[in-house]
């Protein structure tokens, strides 16, 4: 059955997987990050197909900033024009291959026996509102704890960053 949704899914899934494969195979760090952009954006597209539009928007909102920062780190913290080389000894590659096979088999078995009971859910109706209600009523304590953890991380990052240039003026960003 070839519906528009199916075509869109195939396109997005192909781009997502191609982005992932390119991320592993490209040799320059900025190329990898650009491949990552395509993966994240097409995964957001798949979220839209699943009617999780809030999640899709947030995914792009968070990752567009995050990817830009990764790119800057890639530019600033690696050698200019450095290329990663494939190194590894024979038996290590065989072990890796076996590991990949085992993982593939596990996932295949897991998916093959998966049986979604086709209950009618109303999760896609007004899902932004539903997420908000769930976060602020049922899961309020975990949600607040997460924000505290984030705050601690932020403070920790500031302390770590300030330690280096003790007494040096300026140079804030």
């Amino acid at each position: 059955m070839l519906s528009g949704e199916f075509i869109a899914f195939i396109g997005l899934a192909l781009v997502a997987i191609m982005g992932g494969v390119l991320l592993l195979n490209l040799t320059k760090v900025v190329h990898m990050v650009v491949a990552l952009v395509f993966t994240f954006v097409s995964i957001a597209g798949i979220y839209v197909l699943l009617s999780a539009e809030f999640l899709a928007a947030v995914q792009i909102l968070i990752y567009s900033g995050a990817i830009t920062i990764i790119m800057l780190f890639g530019i600033m913290l690696t050698k200019h024009n450095d290329e990663s080389e494939a190194k590894g000894i024979g038996w290590r590659k065989i072990l890796l291959f076996l590991g990949v096979l085992a993982f593939g088999a596990a996932v295949y078995i897991g998916i093959y026996d998966l049986d979604f009971t086709s209950e009618t859910s109303s999760l896609h109706v007004k899902n932004t509102e539903q997420i908000g209600l769930a976060l602020y009523s049922d899961y309020i304590i975990p949600f607040e704890l997460t924000s505290v953890v984030l705050l601690v991380t932020l403070v920790g990052a500031i302390i770590l960053a300030r330690k280096d240039d003790n007494g040096k003026e300026g140079d804030k960003e």
Partner: peptide, 21 residues
């Protein structure tokens, strides 16, 4: 779109990736 405003702000952030690239 139900989350139109968020969509606008999210997508417009992607352009910066192009600029940095």
């Amino acid at each position: 779109i139900g989350v139109g405003l968020l969509y606008y702000i999210a997508i417009s952030g992607l352009s910066t990736v192009g600029v940095v690239t």
